[in-house]
Design a protein around this nucleic acid. Structure first.
Lengths: 194, 194
DNA sequence: TATCTCATGTAAGTGGTTACATGATTGC
DNA sequence: GCAATCATGTAACCACTTACATGAGATA
């Protein structure tokens, strides 16, 4: 049986490429992995520990002076097998629960006051999404020019696709925010007219 | 303190509009609420029970013949207060963990075999997203023609925005799938060339 | 006869977060 | 002197899912 515990497949994927400590992997969630995955260091450590108990990974302790020992993890044969087996399984596509949409609907049932609060939230969102889109686009122009992409190894080209996903999602969200603004302008403007 | 337990704000929002049983609300997750929220009946029942204990909602038992009694819930003053307070709080925007992206990256580290498996998954995805987009567009043409929308109450117009969100997200996903297909065609085609 | 709908619930588990803890080293 | 970085971990909690259970009535 292949469960859903998705973090473990992230970790296996990382360890396919290179050995690493929990700490190092956690750092990656701030950069490359961060386009599509978040995990706290506690979660990473616990999952690595479990995976070690199940024989999917092993570690070697690398002592350091003045710092805690590092546990350098590497993937085992059965870890590789599990990752391949998971790749062959169809993904269950569950829909995401979107808090922002709850707020949109809630604004509707709360009247004028709700609409004003929604406006504020949406303005904050716009700034955040514009910022993130800008970041992604900067990474794209810096590291993924068409010429550079053409000569890249397969693995990196696929990582680039996850960045592209981020870009398209951010753009779609900003387009949607335009529609929200238009609707809110109409609904709240109407009040002023009367 | 206002926690994250988001389901409770969904439930409060629904109960602002109308009294309802847990069963009825669960059904709504298959339709309108389903554009952006999923919840099992167990989860709904448990949350309603907690909320009742906290005084956010109350219920009246409506006996029926041949069927179990219905518990008809309604929102209380303090439930309304909580919803308003939540509306005024900024939403924490955590990023979503996307299993599909894990698979894209994993395909890269697994070589040719991984690319083939990814192709299959992506084909399945395309079908699913096309189907969902079609559903959404049908709902739009049926219930939200421009003329109809213009005369709708605010609450419904905001619900419409959540449908629009669904449409834009599905379209963005399909655009991204086009990019994925192009890349995969190039990477796997290359093998045949050599 | 079997499955579906109505309508409620319990129990166990999973995936993930938050708070707390340790302890040396580096930089403001 | 204070915070940040390196590097690990425990404990408690939260949100949510899956499996199981009940029991009548309607539909295939």
């Amino acid at each position: 049986m292949i469960g859903k515990m998705s973090l473990r497949y992230v970790l296996l994927t990382v360890l396919m490429e290179t050995d690493a400590t929990g700490y190092e992997i956690t750092k990656e969630f701030d950069t490359v992995l961060g386009y599509f995955w978040q995990a706290s260091h506690q979660h990473v450590y616990r999952e690595l520990k479990r995976m070690e108990e199940e024989g999917l990974v092993r570690f070697e302790v690398a002592p350091q002076e003045g710092k805690p020992d590092r546990k350098v993890y590497s993937i085992t044969g059965s870890g590789r097998d599990l990752l391949r087996a998971w790749m062959a399984e169809p993904l269950s596509q569950r829909r995401v629960n979107d808090e922002l949409m709850v707020r949109v609907v809630a604004a509707g049932v709360l009247g004028a006051e709700g609409l004003e609060l929604l406006k504020k939230e949406m303005a904050a969102r716009r700034i955040a999404h514009e910022k993130r889109l800008k970041e992604y686009l900067e990474i794209e122009t810096e590291h993924y020019s068409p010429e550079a992409v053409a000569g890249m190894p397969d693995a990196i080209r696929l990582v680039y696709l996850t960045l592209r996903r981020g870009i398209l999602v951010q753009r779609a969200t900003l387009d949607w925010l335009d529609e929200v603004d238009a609707t809110l302008a109409e609904l709240t403007g109407r009040v002023g007219e009367g």
